[in-house]
């Protein structure tokens, strides 16, 4: 089942920030959608160019894979915000409410720790790619850019989850 965050409708400053983040997420979704449509178009133009004009677009597949990486890791951040990550929660659904609350709390802690861990490792890797000046095979673009998308995605997951913690506490007090 896709879990929802199950929170009461927030009001006041929390709502303002929530709305802001939601707007940013919608924007990000639009950007990914545009990039994806561009990849679809590039794939099609490449096919036509090769079949009819006997010439292929240099590095077309490299660009498409970049879009794929962005969709995977930035998309995962949007999914985190919307609480739609895939899970198997038949068992936990049958638990007593107090237990469920505890499990959900534990999950939030896990997300913060692990997203922080991935963020740190990915950032380091990205910086190493930057200092090694490693470039992609076909287009010669620096590879730190696409590696950085992992760090960016998990950075967003971390911030989103921290904000969830802060905003829930804010509402309670």
């Amino acid at each position: 089942m896709n879990s929802s965050s199950g929170r009461a409708v927030p009001t006041g400053p929390v709502a303002t920030v929530d709305q802001f983040v939601e707007r940013m997420m919608v924007r990000l979704e639009d950007v990914l959608a545009l990039a994806f449509c561009a990849a679809v178009a590039l794939n099609f133009i490449n096919v036509i160019a090769r079949y009819i004009f006997n010439a292929s677009i240099h590095g077309a597949d490299e660009v498409q894979v970049q879009v794929l990486i962005a969709m995977a890791f930035l998309g995962a951040a949007i999914v985190q915000w919307r609480g739609q990550h895939l899970r198997m929660d038949v068992l936990v659904g049958a638990m007593p409410a107090a237990m469920q609350t505890f499990v959900r709390l534990a999950e939030v802690v896990f997300v913060v720790v692990l997203a922080g861990f991935v963020l740190a490792q990915s950032t380091r890797y990205t910086m190493q790619m930057h200092s090694l000046a490693r470039t992609s095979d076909a287009l010669g673009i620096p590879v730190w850019f696409s590696h950085g998308l992992v760090a960016l995605g998990f950075g967003m997951i971390l911030i989103i989850t921290l904000w969830r913690i802060i905003s829930v506490r804010g509402e309670r007090s």
């Binding site: 979704e29 679809v40 969709m71 995962a76 999914v79």
Partner: peptide
């Protein structure tokens, strides 16, 4: 609508590929 479908695809890709990753 075509753009919206692309957005849905991006989200779904995020759901699936983060697990593959």
């Amino acid at each position: 609508d075509i753009m919206r479908a692309a957005g849905t695809t991006a989200i779904f890709t995020g759901q699936v590929l983060i697990i593959v990753s």
